[in-house]
């Protein structure tokens, strides 16, 4: 464990909690892409199946359980409890255009052609593009609630910190996983545009609005 990975995990946890609280407190999921949240629930489900087969550390197990529970709770709030506030007209990204290439890529490019390994690879590739429906929805509505931008900031920050974690681990532990690094780079690059808007607008107290 290193400082980049720990702050990365805490940033990820913060994002997940911020979103859950935003929906729960405002009793509304306006501006939130349910499709992205379903994809994240799928990412955690396919990546954390090893919860039942291998124990790595208490931290690892606890965080995985929290992530999975929050992900499904968020999906439930969006499509269940507060579905009246779900903005389906703007959440129209075609997720099959993500899922099909990700499945093909996971089957073709992986570390080992074994079920758990392919599921893990699928999860890594899917996570790198899972935020696209959410970013697409914001570009369609032309704006985002400030709390939603904080959610996206911490979510983007987490994988950015993981990139430094991988540099650290390569240098100090000789650990290197090309699949995770490439997917993590793609994931972080997708946030660059948002990071720019977040830093130049939201941090200056303005509302995040895109030129519609």
């Amino acid at each position: 464990m290193n400082i980049f990975r720990l702050t990365g995990d805490l940033s990820h946890l913060a994002a997940i909690i911020i979103l859950l609280l935003k929906i729960w407190k405002t009793r509304s999921c306006a501006g939130i892409s349910g499709k992205s949240q379903i994809l994240f629930a799928l990412v955690f489900t396919t990546r954390y199946l090893d919860l039942f087969s291998s124990f790595i550390s208490l931290y690892n197990t606890v965080m995985k359980v929290i992530y999975i529970m929050c992900a499904y709770a968020t999906v439930y709030l969006i499509y269940g409890k507060f579905k009246a506030t779900y903005d389906g007209n703007h959440d129209t990204f075609r997720v099959e255009f993500l899922l099909i290439p990700v499945v093909l890529l996971a089957v073709l490019i992986n570390h080992a052609f074994a079920p758990m390994e392919i599921l893990w690879t699928f999860s890594i590739y899917l996570e790198s593009v899972a935020i696209l429906p959410q970013l697409f929805m914001i570009s369609k509505t032309g704006e985002a609630e400030t709390i939603t931008t904080h959610y996206l900031f911490f979510l983007g920050l987490y994988r950015t910190l993981y990139l430094f974690n991988w540099i650290w681990r390569f240098y100090f532990e000789g650990f290197f996983d090309l699949i995770a690094v490439v997917a993590g780079l793609v994931q972080t690059i997708l946030y660059c545009d948002f990071f720019y808007l977040y830093i130049t607008k939201v941090l200056k107290g303005k509302k995040l609005s895109l030129p519609a």
Binding site: R5, D9, H12, D50, I56, S57, N60, M63, K64, Y67, N110, H111, A112, A114, E117, W120, Y162, N165, F175, F176, D177, L178, A180
Partner: peptide, 10 residues
């Protein structure tokens, strides 16, 4: 293909 290393990251 590098062997699938111990997956200790979240």
């Amino acid at each position: 293909e590098t062997a699938s290393q111990e997956k200790d990251e979240l």
